[in-house]
Lab assay of single mutants.
Amino acid sequence: GSLMYASIFGNVSAIIQRLYSGTARYHTQMLRVREFIRFHQIPNPLRQRLEEYFQHAWSYTNGIDMNAVLKGFPECLQADICLHLNRSLLQHCKPFRGATKGCLRALAMKFKTTHAPPGDTLVHAGDLLTALYFISRGSIEILRGDVVVAILGKNDIFGEPLNLYARPGKSNGDVRALTYCDLHKIHRDDLLEVLDMYPEFSDHFWSSLEITFNLRDTNMIPGSPGSTELEGGFSRQRKRKLSFRRRTDKDTEQPGEVSALGPGRAGAGPSSRGRPGGPWGESPSSGPSSPESSEDEGPGRSSSPLRLVPFSSPRPPGEPPGGEPLMEDCEKSSDTCNPLSGAFSGVSNIFSFWGDSRGRQYQELPRCPAPTPSLLNIPLSSPGRRPRGDVESRLDALQRQLNRLETRLSADMATVLQLLQRQMTLVPPAYSAVTTPGPGPTSTSPLLPVSPLPTLTLDSLSQVSQFMACEELPPGAPELPQEGPTRRLSLPGQLGALTSQPLHRHGSDPGS
């Protein structure tokens, strides 16, 4: 009898404990919600809404976190579960008819179910419309201010047509639940991603989709105040780019002037030289400038040598048109050559190039014969006009050509200096018209024969001689050997007369 009593008592207590286990969990969670309300000092109306929603959600799901349970299964099984949970929507909604099984599984994985109690606001006026909503159960109302403009029910759709707008718009009203509602919502990016994977279904979906109420604000059109608020930074940046392009296009129409201050000032006329910023005076940081632009901040801005204009002085008759350009485009679109090309026009420029290279940067340069637009006047290309890779490749080509020119210049200078040193070592320090008596009659020769300089066969020296023939050397430049009979510069000019005159010897006659 005691054994029977113990078994009955144990079973009854276990049954009672299981009955009250759900209630215990409910009270535990309710205590957490109330502690949250007390800690954050939530006001009474919002506090009442929180408690009511918790009670309804507990009775609806029995305190089970559906998302946590669903995430515990593998992905393939999750797709089947989501397809079952959203079967009513996918079967009865017209846009989803005719979709393949794979497309429906992908869509079912992207849908999220939302449960809303009465009085809950789903979308506020001015919120971004980031999702498309399908009503599965219940009814909602749409308000503009305090005026109800629409009441939607089961199988209705609200949001915005995503295929017509590249960016999400703003809501033009509040969406509030009238009863307990079940909503299926899919985010904008998720829907577009699935439709991109199934393009054959995309056309059918957009053609058959009928949005019951379009929440997009109709005033959000390009150029409206609301649109400016939504895309303020983007609009200002776009206007700045367009104004920069218009100014650079105007600059290219004036090829007669070359400016070292950047493309923003290349198009300024002579009357605007004294102004601080020219056409860019209202925004000094709008356009890029070269490193020399920092010198323009000092006094005497109108007389600054940074602004270059072609000189009108005539060229000498024998002067060549100019050196070879550094870039391939210089032959086609440049009416002034790079300062480095002028360094190779003569030997005198070679000796004085490194010492006063900055001073020569603004000297007169030889002109190319074609009066085409200036290379320095070409505006900086924006990322939309020329690819970045093209600019980098041009810079690399320019750097390689500069290296080759520097190597060639160093070799030419070394060769010229070597020839000058050899000339100085071969010439005796001094010569006299009267020579010392020699031991015999073989001493009648006034000077030792001097062998002429070897013929220069280097390509670089031939180019130097060509430049010497075309360029007029300055007075202080050293002379180079030329073709024809060679003669030492330090010898007297009348050596031929010395050989014809008898030598005057000093000596005593033994017979006297």
Rank of each mutant, 00 (worst) to 15 (best):
A430D: 07
P502D: 08
R386G: 07
Y198D: 02
R408T: 04
R394N: 08
E471L: 10
L326I: 11
L409D: 04
E331T: 08
E392L: 14
P449F: 04
L453I: 10
E231Q: 12
P510G: 09
Q361T: 11
A430L: 12
A497D: 14
I157G: 02
N349W: 01
L376V: 11
L183R: 02
L195T: 05
T436G: 08
Q363F: 13
A414T: 12
P284C: 06
Y198I: 01
K154M: 08
R400P: 01
V147Y: 08
C337H: 14
F344Q: 11
R388E: 11
S333M: 09
E472Y: 07
S290E: 10
S283Y: 03
D459I: 01
L128A: 06
P310W: 02
P387T: 08
K332E: 13
P320N: 09
Y133L: 03
P314R: 06
L473C: 11
P325R: 12
G507F: 06
A411S: 06
G233W: 06
G223R: 11
G322Y: 01
N338H: 14
S227T: 12
Y180R: 04
D182K: 13
T457Q: 10
S381N: 01
V434E: 13
R216F: 01
N155D: 09
Q237W: 06
K154D: 12
P510S: 05
F205N: 03
S202W: 04
P446L: 09
R176F: 02
D329L: 14
P305R: 09
Y180H: 15
R240H: 11
L164M: 10
R301L: 09
V434P: 10
T218M: 12
D156E: 03
L473K: 07
F213T: 03
R265I: 11
S432K: 04
E324K: 15
R167G: 13
G233H: 12
D509A: 09
F213S: 02
S243E: 09
S136F: 04
G346Q: 15
D156L: 02
E364P: 09
E160T: 02
E295S: 12
L195H: 03
R167I: 11
P339V: 10
L308M: 15
S500N: 08
R144Q: 09
D156H: 06
V258T: 10
Q361N: 06
P475D: 15
E160R: 02
S352Y: 04
P310D: 12
G359A: 13
L375S: 07
E253C: 13
A370M: 06
R238E: 12
F351Q: 13
Y165M: 06
Y165D: 11
Q423I: 11
A177C: 12
F134V: 06
T435F: 09
S289M: 15
L375Y: 14
L498D: 09
G440L: 11
Q418V: 07
R394K: 13
D459V: 04
D356E: 14
L191C: 03
L495M: 07
D335S: 11
R301D: 10
G223K: 09
R386W: 15
P325C: 12
D174E: 09
R394G: 09
P321S: 11
R307Q: 11
M424F: 07
G298H: 06
S451A: 14
E392F: 01
A266Q: 10
P429M: 13
G493E: 13
